[in-house]
Simulated assay, not measured.
Amino acid sequence: MQTLLFEQSVQRIADDTTGPIIYQTGVISPALATSWFDALREHVDWHAGARMMYERMVDVPRLHRHYALDDPSLPKALRAACAVVKKQVGAPFNSIGLNCYRDQHDSVAPHNDKLHELVPHQPIALLSLGATRTMVIRRKLPPHLKTELELEAGSLLLMGWNAQLHYDHGIPKLRRPVGPRISVAFRVRPGRGVA
């Protein structure tokens, strides 16, 4: 089965000095994106979370799950997705984080990945499945340049390790209805087997 399309577009958000951050559409076909979305939505043991904010416990506004690549319970769809992303990016990913945004009310606040939890100089790759959602990428230092990306199903956002030093990224809540989306984040974590 061919997973790569010939109708791809590439957008460079940040250069190699502060990034890179690169957005590419059409990394997998719409049919394959739908198939993986359905499989993950149905078969992943999704977790809800809560955290302390403003001196009270609040629900985390999305569902989440994490897998090590060598986890025997890793869903087949994630194993296949990792093979495609590794071929596209060329990084030795060993960790997969999932976020499920159920509707327009789910979000993630602007943040950057914690560098102590990553192998230095290895990229982070985000594969989008399901409904299109807006990601806001904002430079931390002046000028606080902001980019809004519409993350389509089957697209890949590649962020360099050093981009975490210079940019925050987040998925804001929306005022209009939107369907569910799953973000599949591939990372290289220290102290884990690399495949």
Rank of each mutant, 00 (worst) to 15 (best):
V119T: 13
H144L: 11
P72S: 06
R176Y: 09
E117I: 08
H121P: 00
Q8N: 09
E117V: 10
D45W: 03
Q2W: 10
L165A: 08
P110S: 06
M1L: 07
N99C: 06
S155F: 04
V89C: 04
L4T: 15
K76S: 15
V194Q: 13
K114T: 15
Q11K: 14
A80K: 12
R102C: 07
D113P: 05
S73R: 10
L126M: 12
L69N: 06
S128N: 08
G19R: 00
A185Y: 00
H169R: 03
M135D: 01
A185I: 12
T34H: 11
P92L: 02
P190H: 05
T147S: 12
Y167K: 03
L115H: 08
I13P: 04
F6Q: 15
V194M: 10
L4R: 13
H47L: 14
Y54F: 15
N94E: 05
K76A: 14
R192W: 13
S29Y: 05
G49L: 01
T132W: 03
T147A: 11
G130F: 02
A81W: 00
I137E: 04
D70K: 10
T17M: 08
Q88E: 13
C100A: 13
N94T: 07
P20A: 04
V44I: 10
W36T: 05
M57Q: 14
S29C: 08
T134E: 13
R181H: 04
A14W: 01
K140D: 10
V60Y: 00
N94M: 03
R56N: 07
G170D: 03
F6V: 14
I28A: 01
K86N: 01
L174S: 15
M159Q: 11
Q104G: 07
A68N: 12
L4C: 09
G19Y: 02
A50I: 10
S95T: 09
V188I: 04
D59R: 14
Q104H: 11
H169V: 01
T18G: 05
A80H: 13
P61F: 02
G130C: 02
H169M: 02
L115P: 06
D38S: 11
A125M: 04
L74E: 06
R181F: 02
V58C: 06
W161N: 09
R65Y: 05
P177W: 01
P30Y: 00
A33D: 01
M57R: 12
H105W: 05
N99D: 06
R181I: 01
M57S: 10
V178L: 07
R139D: 00
P30N: 03
D70R: 12
F6A: 15
Q24I: 13
P123Q: 07
A163Q: 03
G97F: 03
A48S: 15
H169W: 00
H64P: 00
H111A: 08
S29P: 02
Y54R: 14
A50Q: 14
L4P: 08
V85P: 06
R102I: 03
I13N: 03
D168A: 02
R138T: 15
V85W: 06
K76I: 11
P61I: 02
A91K: 03
Y67H: 11
R12F: 07
I124E: 07
H105R: 14
F93Q: 06
H116Y: 11
R56G: 10
N162W: 13
A33G: 10
D15T: 13
T25L: 01
R187V: 08
C82Q: 09
M53K: 09
P92T: 02
L149R: 05
V27H: 02
A81T: 00
L157H: 01
L78I: 04
T134Q: 12
P61V: 07
G191D: 06
